[in-house]
Design a binder for these strands. Structure first.
Lengths: 100, 100
DNA sequence: TTGGTATATCGGGAAAAGCCGATATATATT
DNA sequence: AATATATATCGGCTTTTCCCGATATACCAA
């Protein structure tokens, strides 16, 4: 549980937006194709379009968030679906309330 | 209230340590000269010694924490005393619980 | 197998952060 | 005024982050 890594992941406007968007996928990603995306998450392409940055950048950002355990990924066919990891976010709350 | 600025301020091991040390100054800074330091804070020099980085670096780190409203400063004579800004830290908790 | 789509990885240029020593500024003392 | 101490600011070198385009990989469909 590397605190610095978590805070670095959060030190970017786009990555904070992604986390926020993933709080309510049906609201923020109405064009999503997969009907089960509330459970499985949102695919990289949708996030990329919404963020307006390049595909490679968004892919990298998602893996930064994943390494910090703030999101989790599920591969289904040719898509990778990302969703918030409430477990990791709970850990963050604990860090802040106890250690900080 | 720039969230990115706050998280950037927290994205450094030394700065996290400083915040943590300032939770209990009498424990972490036993050599402190000012007897009232529990209220006023800890001076830059003491923090610098404890951190083991250069004076200029620590001075800069403290102003980064201050800009993020995580600490506050009080100048008394030739010393500047820094202490945690519980107000700013409360704001951080709110950001995380509500917006993130 | 061939081609198409989704994502990941690589290489790199530009900007920011990490950290230093030197210097400037503010205050206190003599 | 001169000196000493504490802190802040400046200039610079090194490492990391921000993004990109190009390419590689994985999967699917014909």
């Amino acid at each position: 549980m590397d605190q610095v890594e978590i805070f670095k992941a959060l030190s970017n406007k786009t990555r904070l937006q992604i986390l926020s968007w993933l709080k309510d996928p049906s609201l923020n990603f109405p064009d999503q194709l997969n009907p089960d995306f509330e459970n499985v998450g949102v695919c990289v392409g949708q996030i990329q379009i919404k963020a307006g940055l390049s595909q490679s950048t968004i892919s990298e950002y998602l893996s930064i968030l994943q390494r910090a355990k703030l999101v989790s990924a599920t591969r289904v066919g040719q898509w990778t679906y990302y969703k918030r990891s409430e477990e990791g976010l709970k850990q963050l709350t604990e860090i802040i309330s106890k250690e900080l």
